[in-house]
């Protein structure tokens, strides 16, 4: 445990998606001592999930992922405070909900959710820790809308409806989501404690096939329809 961990007890973190990334994010944030986690996922546990979504177990197949995750987290940390939302969040709900959230962790698997979360975080000035992974690699970025110079997720990707590769379709090496999710958890703790150099304004990319890590410097897009 780090000395500052006590402060984490009073933190409230929203985790969107309890799949491959959400599993390690939730487990490591619970283990780190974050006091209150809000878990959002509308799906139920499927056998095909278990290969990479390590918070869920065979006995929970068919159950809501939120309920399955709750069970694992309570076994891990008995006094953790958990709130469960077992359906997709509407724009309105999301906005209301963010008012007392310290950090949002995007562990979702599609652009629509990512853009909706980003817009709400920019509007409410809530820190956003975004992670994504597929096949042999992934990316992590941190956005701090409170800081004027911070880019947002929409500065990075244009908002075009496009079906991209998903983990369930093209596959993923299970430890990749462990690596990317673990980095997300680290960045959440850093933002909560306001320590270290955050990944804000940077995109960290990992390609396991060639063992290449890269940190790209991002720019706030002066024409961004969300943050500018």
């Amino acid at each position: 445990m780090i000395p500052q961990a006590k402060q984490l007890k009073h933190s409230k973190v929203l985790i969107v998606g309890l799949g491959g990334l959400g599993s390690p994010v939730a487990m490591y944030l619970a283990a780190s001592g974050v006091g209150h986690l809000v878990l959002v996922d509308g799906d139920c546990v499927d056998l095909s999930n278990l290969q990479r979504q390590i918070i869920h177990e065979t006995v929970h197949i068919g159950q809501q992922k939120t309920v399955s995750a709750q069970r694992k987290l309570q076994q891990q940390v008995s006094d953790i405070h958990l709130s469960l939302i077992s359906h997709a969040l509407s724009k309105h709900m999301l906005k209301n909900m963010l008012c007392d959230i310290d950090v949002v962790v995007d562990c979702s698997d599609n652009f629509a959710t990512r853009f909706a979360l980003n817009a709400a975080c920019v509007e409410q000035k809530t820190p956003l820790v975004s992670g994504a992974a597929v096949r042999w690699g992934g990316q992590v970025a941190v956005f701090l809308p409170e800081q004027k110079q911070s880019p947002c997720y929409r500065c990075l990707y244009p908002d075009i409806e496009e079906q991209l590769e998903t983990c369930s379709h093209v596959g993923i090496l299970a430890p990749i989501v462990g690596i990317i999710g673990s980095i997300q958890a680290v960045e959440v703790v850093k933002v909560l404690l306001n320590i270290g150099t955050s990944l804000c304004g940077k995109l960290l990319t990992f390609d396991a096939y060639t063992d290449t890590w890269r940190t790209l410097k991002l720019h706030k897009d002066p024409a961004c329809p969300v943050c500018s």
């Binding site: 994504a132 992934g138 990316q139 991209l164 983990c167 990319t205």
Partner: peptide
């Protein structure tokens, strides 16, 4: 110059 694919999986 480096090119990266978009990633949205989770």
């Amino acid at each position: 110059i480096a090119f990266f694919p978009p990633v949205t999986g989770g």
